[in-house]
Amino acid sequence: MTEQTFTYEARGQVLVIHLPKELDHHNCRNLRYETDLLFSENYINKVVFDFSKTQFMDSSGIGVLLNRYKQMAGSGGKVTLYGVNAQVGRVLAIGGIHRLMEHFDSKEAAIAG
């Protein structure tokens, strides 16, 4: 029942956040608490969102991305994405995310980018 929605992977100063299949308000509830904890305990200057398993996303996902972007931008950091499918891509475009976060095809590229 308490299966973890997000999994986190640290690569030096980069935090990779693996997103769930359905990125809606229900699934986004714990993200803020979890990332705030990780940011407070580690020096992170880049967040990479992994959309490769994500099939659905609504504006709750946009809120989560924007807030992480603000946190990173505030400390001179960066946010990148990879693995975005067509539905998610449309939602990201309408949410204005394309202008703020670069999209990559692979995890390695997103970490390096």
Binding site: D58, S59, I62, G63, L66, N67, G95
Partner: peptide
């Protein structure tokens, strides 16, 4: 107030 909500719900419905 948390900053986690984008405020784009109605815009998305319209889009």
């Amino acid at each position: 107030k948390s900053g986690e909500r984008s405020g784009m719900g109605f815009s998305f419905m319209e889009a």
